[in-house]
Design a protein around this nucleic acid. Structure first.
Lengths: 206, 206
DNA sequence: GGATGTGAATGTCTTCACAGCT
DNA sequence: AGCTGTGAAGACATTCACATCC
C-alpha cells in the first residue's frame, strides 16, 4: 500500500472519534459531509482519505457507522492493546500517568521512570515511579510498545537513544527538543511552547 | 506581508529555542546548517523561512545569534507578555497552571476556572480555581490574550463560544474535539489521543 | 572561500468536478 | 435523486542549484 501522509492519519483519528459518538447516539449511517464538519475539513477530503485504503461507503447512502469505525480501527492498529512507558515523572509525566483516558483507548501506562531520587518510589494510582537506571533490566521482560519522553530538554536525547537501543519503535516526545532517531523509529512531538508561540504570531498578524 | 504558513511559524519557534541555547553558551554566530540540524529540517528550508521576512544574515558568515533571536521574537510577537486563562481544572488544567515554564517565556496564567464545585476554591501555586460562571464578570477587567480550553469534550464547544463572545482571539484547545469559531479567532489543538493513534498507525505500517 | 538569498523545479496535499453506483 | 469514488487541476510546501555578496 502507498505511503499515507501524516495529516491523513490524524484526520482518520478524528473521524473515528466522531463515529464513536455516532455509535453511542445510535446513529447508523453518516455522509462524507457529516464527517467533514466534525473533522474540520471538506467532504471531498474525507472521501479522498478513505479512498486511499479502499471503498467503504455506499453511493447514494453514505457510510455505515459501525463498519467504517471497524475499518478505521483496523487501519490505525487499534484492535490491539499497547504497553506504554513514561520517562520523566515531572508535572507532565504525572498528568500522563494518572490520566485514565488512555487506558480506555487501549494505551496502558505500565511503567514510570525518573532520575530524581526524591521522586523514585512515589506511587500514583498504583503505579510506582522507578529509577530510570532500571529501564535496562525492565524492558527485556515487558517491553513497551510506546515510550513517552517527558524529561527536561537536556536529558531527552540521551533517554531517547537508550529507548531505541532497547527496542522501542514509537516515541511520544514532550521535551522541547528535536529527537534524532533512526528512520524506523516513529516520533511524534507535543510542544506547548510552540503552540503558544504560534498563537502569539497569529494574534499579531491579523 | 504575504501570509505565512503554519509549519513555517512553528519552525521559527524551534529556531528561536536553538538560538537561546546559543546565547547561553556564548555562541555568537550560527549558519543555516546549524539551525537546520536542530530544527529537524534542511539548510535551504531555514534560509527560505527567513527570506519570507527579510534578509537577516551575512553571506560567507552566517547569522548573528543575538540579532536573529531578536528578529524572531519580534516576528513571533514575543516582545510582550500575555495573560492566559485556563478553563478546566482537571489533570491537564492543573499541570498547565502549575507549570512554571510558560511564565518564563512571557505567558502568565492568571485565571483558572472549573464548573465542579469540588474544585472551585482550590489553590495551586497561589492561583485559586474560580467558578466558571465568573468568567463573564472577570474578563472585562483583565481580559486574557489567550485562553486554554482543558474541559471535557462535551463542554469544550460551548466554553469556546463564550470565550469568543467575551473577546478572546486565541485558543489553545486540549479537548479532543474540533472547535468551530469565527475566522478571526486562532485555534491550536493539542490532542494526545491523535498522537498516540498516529504512533499506533506508524507501528503497524513499516 | 564560504554561506546567504532566491527563482525554478519538484514534490506533496487539497480541491474540483463529474462519472458511476444504489 | 443522492452520495460515493477518483482522475485531473490547483494550491501549497520543500528542495535544488546557483548567482550574489561579505
Amino acid at each position: 500500500m502507498r505511503r499515507i501522509a501524516d495529516p491523513t492519519v490524524r484526520r482518520l483519528s478524528l473521524y473515528l472519534r466522531f463515529l464513536e459518538e455516532c455509535e453511542e447516539r445510535g446513529v447508523a449511517t453518516v455522509s462524507s459531509e457529516g464527517l467533514a464538519h466534525r473533522g474540520a475539513t471538506t467532504a471531498a477530503q474525507v472521501r479522498k482519505d478513505f479512498s486511499l485504503f479502499g471503498s467503504f461507503g455506499k453511493r447514494g447512502l453514505g457510510y455505515t457507522v459501525s463498519d467504517l469505525a471497524k475499518r478505521l480501527r483496523n487501519i490505525l492498529g487499534l484492535e490491539r492493546e499497547y504497553v506504554v512507558a513514561v520517562v520523566g515523572a515531572g508535572k507532565v509525566g504525572r498528568a500522563l500517568a494518572q490520566y485514565g483516558g488512555f487506558a480506555a483507548r487501549g494505551f496502558h501506562v505500565r511503567w514510570v521512570y525518573d532520575a530524581d531520587p526524591a521522586k523514585v518510589g512515589m506511587e500514583w494510582n498504583g503505579l510506582r515511579v522507578r529509577d530510570v537506571r532500571r529501564i535496562e533490566a525492565d524492558f527485556p521482560r515487558t517491553p513497551p510498545d510506546i515510550a513517552i519522553v517527558a524529561t527536561p530538554a537536556d536529558a531527552a536525547q540521551s533517554v531517547a537513544a537508550q529507548l531505541v537501543e532497547l527496542g522501542v519503535r514509537a516515541i511520544l516526545n514532550f521535551a522541547p527538543v528535536h529527537l534524532t532517531v533512526p528512520d524506523d523509529v516513529a516520533v511524534k512531538n507535543v510542544n506547548m511552547a510552540i503552540e503558544l508561540e504560534a498563537l502569539s504570531y497569529a494574534l499579531r498578524h491579523r
